[in-house]
Deep mutational scan, measured.
Amino acid sequence: KTYTFRVRIVDEETGEEKEIEVTAKSEEEAKKAAEELKKKYPNLKVELE
């Protein structure tokens, strides 16, 4: 079973919002993916929905 999570990304500089879908095998995995995004884009606000 896989879970699909919507991750909302807000670029703090431009105020631009993007939504991406993360497919993960567990909620834990999705959280890790969101953390990776935060590391990659430090000025983005990442929200897991």
Rank of each mutant, 00 (worst) to 15 (best):
K1I: 11
K1N: 09
T2H: 09
T2S: 10
Y3K: 05
T4L: 10
F5L: 07
F5M: 04
F5C: 04
R6K: 13
V7T: 01
V7Y: 11
I9D: 00
V10A: 03
D11S: 03
D11V: 04
E12L: 13
E13W: 07
T14L: 03
T14N: 04
T14E: 01
T14H: 02
G15L: 04
E16A: 07
E16K: 05
E17H: 08
E17T: 13
E17L: 10
K18G: 04
K18S: 10
K18R: 14
E19Y: 15
E19K: 06
E19A: 07
I20E: 03
I20F: 12
I20G: 01
E21I: 15
E21V: 14
E21N: 07
E21A: 06
V22L: 13
V22E: 00
V22T: 01
V22F: 15
T23E: 11
T23F: 14
A24W: 06
A24N: 02
A24H: 03
K25Y: 14
K25F: 14
K25L: 11
K25T: 13
S26E: 02
E27R: 13
E27P: 11
E27S: 06
E28N: 07
E28M: 08
E28K: 08
E29L: 06
E29H: 04
E29G: 05
E29P: 00
A30G: 04
A30M: 08
K31R: 13
K31N: 08
K32T: 08
K32G: 05
K32N: 09
K32V: 10
K32P: 00
A33D: 02
A33M: 15
A34D: 00
A34L: 15
A34F: 15
A34Q: 07
A34P: 00
E35H: 07
E35G: 06
E35D: 10
E35N: 10
E36P: 01
E36R: 09
E36K: 08
L37P: 00
L37R: 01
L37I: 12
K38E: 05
K38N: 05
K38T: 07
K38M: 14
K39F: 08
K39T: 06
K40C: 10
K40N: 06
Y41Q: 03
Y41V: 03
P42K: 06
P42Y: 04
P42H: 05
P42T: 06
N43Q: 07
L44A: 14
L44M: 13
L44V: 07
K45C: 06
K45F: 09
V46E: 03
V46Y: 08
V46A: 04
L48W: 15
E49L: 15
